[in-house]
C-alpha cells in the first residue's frame, strides 16, 4: 500500500468497495476516491450516502488508511447517530458523496523524537495511518483506551500492523483498568529521547492529555472533533477557541479548515485549561 502526500479536496460520488464489520456498531469502510487516497494522517472526509433521505448534512470521518496506488481509502466507523448510522448501513457497491481530503493533519516529528499516540474510542482511527507514515523511525507507541473490551474493536487490526500497543478499559475487561492516561503517565519518563504526544478521542481525554503534556512541557497535538456541518469553513458550526501567540485573546476558529489537529497549548478548553 502506498502513502502519498495530501492535495486539494474534491467532491466525488464514489463506490463503497469493501465493508468489514468489526462487531456491534463498528465497521471498516473502504471507498474509491483518488484525492482522499492521498490524505495525510489526521485529515478527514465529509461523507453521506448518495440517497440520504431527510438527512441533510454529511458527517466527518477521520481517514484510517489510504492506498494511493489503488485510489482507495478506509474509515473506521462507529454508528453513533443517524448520520453515521446511514454511512454504516451502506453496502458494498452502493455509492456515497465523499468530499476530501479536508483539514490539517498531524505534523511530523523530528527523527530524534519518540512518538506517543493516545487514541480513545473511535478516535484511534488516524493513528493507524500515522503509524505507517512514521515507520521505520522514529520509534512510536500507541495507547488505546475505551470503556470496555467491546469498545476496542480495532485491536486486532492494529496488532496486525505491528503497532506497539498499550490497552486500557474503564471496566478492566481488557488491558489496564481505568483511563488511558493511567499507563500513559509512567511511560512518558521511560525511554530515550524527547517525547512528542498526539491525541485523538473524547474531549475529556484530550483535555487530560493536554494537561499532562503542559505539566511536562512535552509538545502535543490534539485532533478536535466538534459538531461539524460542512467541513469547508462556511457554516462556522465547528469553531473551537484558539489562542494564537500574537493575538490578545482567543478566537473562534473553524476546526474543519484550521484544524482538526491543533497544538494543544493553543486550545482554550471548555473545561478550563490547560489543566
Amino acid at each position: 500500500m502506498t502513502v502519498a502526500s495530501g492535495g486539494p479536496p474534491l467532491d466525488r460520488l464514489c463506490a463503497l468497495v469493501k465493508r468489514e464489520s468489526l462487531g456491534g456498531a463498528y465497521a471498516l469502510l473502504t471507498f474509491e476516491h483518488e484525492e482522499v487516497s492521498r490524505a495525510l494522517a489526521g485529515q478527514f472526509a465529509m461523507i453521506q450516502p448518495e440517497i440520504s433521505g431527510d438527512l441533510l448534512l454529511r458527517r466527518p470521518f477521520s481517514i484510517m488508511d489510504v492506498d494511493s496506488a489503488t485510489g482507495r481509502f478506509t474509515i473506521f466507523l462507529k454508528a453513533v447517530g443517524a448520520g453515521s448510522k446511514a454511512v454504516f448501513d451502506l453496502r458494498a457497491g452502493e455509492r456515497a458523496r465523499v468530499l476530501g481530503p479536508l483539514g490539517h493533519g498531524f505534523s511530523l516529528p523530528a527523527a530524534s523524537e519518540r512518538v506517543v499516540m493516545v487514541g480513545g474510542g473511535y478516535g484511534v482511527a488516524p493513528f493507524a495511518l500515522f503509524s505507517r507514515v512514521l515507520k521505520p523511525s522514529p520509534p512510536f507507541h500507541l495507547f488505546y483506551g475505551g470503556r470496555s473490551a467491546a469498545e476496542l474493536p480495532l485491536v486486532r487490526e492494529l496488532e496486525r500492523r505491528g503497532i506497539p500497543l498499550t490497552l486500557s478499559t474503564d471496566d478492566g475487561t481488557r488491558g489496564e483498568k481505568g483511563r488511558v492516561t493511567g499507563p500513559l503517565v509512567p511511560a512518558l519518563s521511560v525511554g530515550e529521547g524527547t517525547v512528542r504526544l498526539y491525541a485523538c478521542g473524547p474531549e475529556a481525554m484530550m483535555h487530560a492529555v493536554a494537561g499532562i503534556a503542559a505539566e511536562r512541557e512535552i509538545p502535543c497535538e490534539v485532533s478536535l472533533d466538534p459538531w461539524m456541518g460542512c467541513g469547508i469553513g462556511t457554516c462556522l458550526g465547528c469553531v473551537v477557541k484558539i489562542q494564537e501567540p500574537g493575538e490578545g485573546r482567543p478566537r473562534n476558529r473553524p476546526a474543519c479548515t484550521e484544524g482538526p489537529v491543533f497544538d494543544s497549548r493553543r486550545v482554550i478548553w471548555p473545561q478550563g485549561g490547560p489543566a
Binding site: P226, W227, G229, C235, L236, G237, C238, V239
Partner: peptide
Amino acid sequence: GCEVPRIAETPAGLLNAIGLQ
C-alpha cells in the same frame, strides 16, 4: 459569534445559532 454547539440537524432541516461571526 455564539458559543458552541451552534448547529443541530433536524428532519430535513438545520437549526443554527452562529451569531454572525
